[in-house]
Computed example of a mutant assay.
Amino acid sequence: MYLAITVLLLVLLTESILFLGYSYITTITYDLYVKITRDNRVAKQKKMKTDVLRLKAELGQTSSQDEFSKWAKLRRKLDKAVADLEKLNSDISYSRAAFELKVKSVLWFLVHGSQVVMVLWFRKSAVFYLPPGWFGPAQRFLSWPSAPEGSVSVGIWFAACRRMIKALALTVNDFVLVPSTEKKIKTT
């Protein structure tokens, strides 16, 4: 019976990942990674953004005709700060993309690879046995591809669990999420 529960929990986990989406999970994971590691580039980026905004405000208050030398000096400072900020943004963006690619690869293996490994590893195992004669000739199909006859195979149990979880999610979506949006539409 542990195999049936393990498969059900694995399908629940994988369907939750697919429901949330790889991009959402990788974004949350990256934000958490940055907070935990306290990446100094992110702190430097925030400081550089505030400096650029301060320089822009100072440049806006300086007259280009009356105080040209001060204005030109501030303009060069601002241009250099913007160029440095863009370079840092590029570096952070590159490292973020690499991190997200790694996380998406792990998620893909967790979703698809774990199921393939489970089906291959337990292909000859019975998840549980059916009472004889209840399903007639369909009993052979339920034990497909190589589980003992009269039992349910891991592959069929994966498909049944996946179908049940998706149907449950659609039902919850129809009865819980849709009425709340209808109320918002009626009130506006």
Rank of each mutant, 00 (worst) to 15 (best):
S90V: 02
F135Y: 14
V127A: 00
E100I: 03
S93C: 05
S125D: 15
T171H: 07
S114A: 08
S90W: 03
E182Y: 14
D174A: 15
A83E: 09
T171I: 04
F109H: 12
A126C: 05
F122I: 02
E149T: 06
D84H: 07
R123S: 14
S143W: 00
T181I: 09
A97V: 01
L168T: 07
A97N: 09
S151A: 09
T171W: 11
W121I: 11
K102N: 15
P179Q: 05
W157I: 01
A138R: 07
W144Q: 08
R140T: 12
A160G: 06
Y94Q: 13
P179A: 04
V178E: 06
A160M: 13
L177E: 03
V127W: 01
P132S: 10
V111I: 11
S143N: 12
A160F: 12
I92Y: 09
L120H: 04
A138Q: 04
H112M: 11
F175P: 01
S90Q: 09
C161W: 05
I156F: 06
F175D: 02
A98E: 13
V117D: 04
L142I: 06
F128L: 13
I185K: 15
T181D: 09
E149K: 13
A167D: 09
V111H: 06
S125L: 04
V119H: 05
V117L: 14
W121K: 14
W157H: 08
R96D: 09
K124P: 01
S125C: 02
S143C: 07
L101K: 11
G150P: 02
C161N: 10
H112Q: 11
I185L: 12
K183H: 08
A83P: 00
F122Q: 04
A167Q: 08
N89D: 15
V176P: 01
I165E: 03
V127F: 08
A97H: 12
F135R: 01
V82S: 00
K186V: 10
N89T: 06
V172W: 08
G155F: 00
V178N: 09
D174I: 03
M164A: 15
K104L: 05
F99Q: 09
I165G: 01
P148N: 07
M118W: 05
R123W: 13
N89W: 01
S90N: 13
Q115D: 02
L170C: 10
A138K: 01
L142V: 03
P148K: 06
V127T: 01
I185A: 15
V172E: 07
G150W: 01
F175V: 14
S95E: 15
S93N: 14
W134G: 04
D84C: 02
V117H: 00
N173R: 10
V106H: 03
V106T: 08
G136K: 11
V111M: 13
S105Y: 05
N89R: 05
P132C: 04
V103A: 15
L130V: 05
L170I: 09
Y129H: 13
V152L: 06
M118C: 10
M118Q: 10
D174F: 14
I185Y: 15
R163P: 00
S93L: 08
W121Y: 14
S151R: 05
V111Q: 05
L120P: 00
V82Q: 08
